[in-house]
Design a protein around this nucleic acid. Structure first.
Lengths: 179, 179
DNA sequence: ACCCTAACTTGTCATTGACAAGATGGCATC
DNA sequence: GATGCCATCTTGTCAATGACAAGTTAGGGT
């Protein structure tokens, strides 16, 4: 038997939830099924997250932090940042799914707000190095195109001819911006 | 008392469901609450749609048809088609929300597949008039940018400075493509 | 040795989705 | 105009779920 005090349950629940959501979407996630997968009682998740919205808030927060990490690695280059954005969405599909669905979680949670602000800062930074032009509109266009591509990819809405490598396809698409 | 045979229930349920989803998202939609809003018994919706997935399949199908109508009105112009796409997303938020969430409905439903194909045809048509370039990648970029903008707008993820008119903002953003 | 509290469990309740079976009434057919 | 048919809608029921209340366990500080 595992010890009565799991000790690491919160993290395990988050990763398990991410896996479950990646399979069937946030709507299909059940607190009780999550508890079952983690081998704990049906009320254990509620202890750590309060309720379902609490869990998804934690997931979204983690997601914004992961996105910030991914963008940091691109180091300010617009194209790389865009590709990294798509890469993040594909690698962390569950987080991405939840992050932009604020009705599922508590969008005013302080930790969530802070993490989102950090990621937003890096997102804007990716465009900052471009010279001239209307920076705001450029940033918005860049964000829109990568977000749209990632969303369509994840939804399976893109035709097969796009190919199997989302990051490569994204690179080609982003190239159409400011061409 | 309303007559025992409602006669128009199916359509009423679809519009009521769209309103409910526009308020709180597809996840929060309850068949029983839907029945309550429509003033019918809790099992009436299931008669028309089978189950929740059936209802959302019907909504998505209707959504693709509405999108096709909106695109047709743009008459082949790329910029107009993009603005129309965003306008559709904002005006028919619930439909748009469901359409690109295939795990919520039966993506292989024949009527759904047909409606989606019709809309897809018009979508590609919006880019067809452009001369030269790699048409596929151009179409993908255009779709991505309008879809991303619409998604971000609906998620409330855009900063306030973007303003209150999504179609105007979209026009400016789309202008960054092929500039 | 003691308690204090975080971590988890058991128990419960209203609500939900899905299904089964019954009731109603318009409509075609004779 | 009586009869039968069947789509439409209702009532009834069941397992599963989310949320909450109350109890149990163990580890750490004093």
């Amino acid at each position: 038997m595992a010890s009565y005090h799991h000790g690491d349950l919160r993290r395990v629940l988050l990763t398990t939830a991410a896996a479950a959501i990646a399979e069937s979407g946030p709507a299909a996630l059940s607190m009780r099924d999550l508890a079952r997968r983690a081998g704990v009682s049906h009320a254990a998740p509620a202890h750590h997250f309060g309720d379902k919205a609490g869990l998804l808030t934690a997931l979204a927060t983690q997601g914004f932090d992961l996105l910030a990490d991914a963008l940091r690695a691109a180091d300010g280059d617009l194209l790389d940042a865009g590709v990294a954005y798509v890469g993040f969405a594909v690698r962390h599909r569950a987080h991405f799914d939840v992050m932009f669905r604020p009705e599922l979680y508590r969008a005013d949670d302080p930790e969530l707000v802070a993490a989102r602000a950090r990621a937003g800062e890096l997102l804007r930074g990716g465009v900052a190095r471009r010279t001239g032009g209307q920076r705001d509109a450029d940033a918005l266009a860049a964000w829109s195109i990568v977000h749209g591509f990632a969303t369509l990819w994840l939804a399976g809405a893109l035709p097969p001819r796009v190919g199997g490598d989302p990051q490569a396809a994204a690179r080609s698409v982003i190239g159409r911006l400011f061409a």
